[in-house]
Design a protein around this nucleic acid. Structure first.
Lengths: 216, 216
DNA sequence: TTTTGTGAAACGCTTCACAGCG
DNA sequence: CGCTGTGAAGCGTTTCACAAAA
């Protein structure tokens, strides 16, 4: 394994796709997968797949391909999925509720432990088996319950402020649903629905078809 | 204005950000914005902003910057936001419900006209003022109500099939929430929450901080 | 002086071409 | 042969450097 910080971001974005494909093939009975097989469902060339996987050493066998279960284990390890992640949802509006009701997350080791909201009207509610607490309980909860990730679904006017609160409490990463950049010293990935819709509007207006470069 | 199909995709992804920033500055009383101002909130260099905007002709003034309201109009036109988009939500699970309750969309001219689901138990329900219909009504509705976009929030096992249905009915673009590529001859933008979480896990595991290249 | 617009250079990722292994 | 791994070439985007406009 090479130093993870040397892996190009475009490669990282594809690793999830390879992992899924490998898992699908294993379920279909495969014990071995080729670079072409790993890429074809997502229109990624075999060469590209091999270059990407090459970052982790020589893990394939010429003439055969990749040992499927090994590959899955390697990808899981690189992506950081060989552990369990404890997360809280902050902001129980529409998006927060959707996350709380989304069972797929726990399949990958992401566990939503609790939710928080400023609005006293929703405090005490239970959504998808997860209890909603008041914001004043946030810091203690994160510290005491060993929470790693924050799923941030608050209005954009307060997202930076709440993000800083999370970081102060010791959180390690934030999935941000607000349409603005967060300046915090932890990992951040943003999901910006308005922006996605606008990119779609551009595509349609331009008469473009299919997905833009690499499923983003 | 140049041919839109010649605009590089990385540029398109940034246009939404410039538009937002320009609008924010106008609200704050600005009549003029510089390339540096447009980029700084998102950590984009002034040169980059100018190269991007250069695709639409020479719309700035040396020493001054860009006429704010003009710029907003231009960006809106390029992105295809100078019109109204009629959309339907297909699949009224957690994500579908979240979209239906999300009022911000209509601010940008995206109007969710109706929702559809296979499950008879939710048909007839009204969510966020939008009625849920059965899947059998989908094709006629799209044709008769002049629907342009489909917001696809169905399980991944059926997403390709439903996408084909939408295209057959004449839809022009799909915002896809299922974790798989859609092979259809219309515009597609995907929002893949599991993948975003996995990229976040990678970042945190690697000790990386801040956002990956350009807020994606 | 501030800021745009733009060729040219630099950079990073993708694709090619092919050696080598099973 | 089929498939991997990889140096080298190719390509598209970003950054630099600077001329020109207000």
């Amino acid at each position: 394994m090479t130093d993870r910080s040397e892996i190009p971001w475009p490669t990282v974005k594809r690793l999830s796709l390879y992992l899924r494909e490998a898992e699908r093939r294993i379920e279909a009975g495969a014990t071995t997968v080729s670079s072409r097989q790993l890429g074809e469902a997502n229109d990624i060339a075999g060469t590209q797949v091999r270059k990407d996987l090459g970052h982790f050493g020589q893990i394939g066998k010429s003439g055969i391909g990749y040992q499927a279960t090994n590959l899955v284990m390697t990808l899981r390890r690189i992506l950081g999925l060989n552990r369990s992640w404890r997360a809280v949802v902050v902001g129980v509006g529409n998006i927060g509720r959707a996350i709380l009701g989304y069972p797929q997350f726990s399949q990958r080791g992401f566990h939503v432990i609790a939710a928080f909201d400023q609005n006293q009207a929703v405090v005490g509610e239970k959504i998808g088996g997860v209890e909603v607490h008041g914001m004043e309980a946030l810091i203690d909860f994160i510290e005491n319950e060993d929470i790693h990730l924050g799923l941030l679904a608050v209005p954009s006017e307060v997202s930076q402020q709440v993000a800083e609160l999370l970081v102060e409490a010791g959180i390690k990463g934030i999935l941000n649903f607000a349409p603005n950049r967060l300046l915090v010293p932890v990992g951040v990935v943003s999901v910006d629905l308005s922006r996605s819709l606008e990119m779609l509007a551009f595509q349609v207006s331009s008469g473009l078809t299919g997905e833009p470069p690499l499923g983003d």
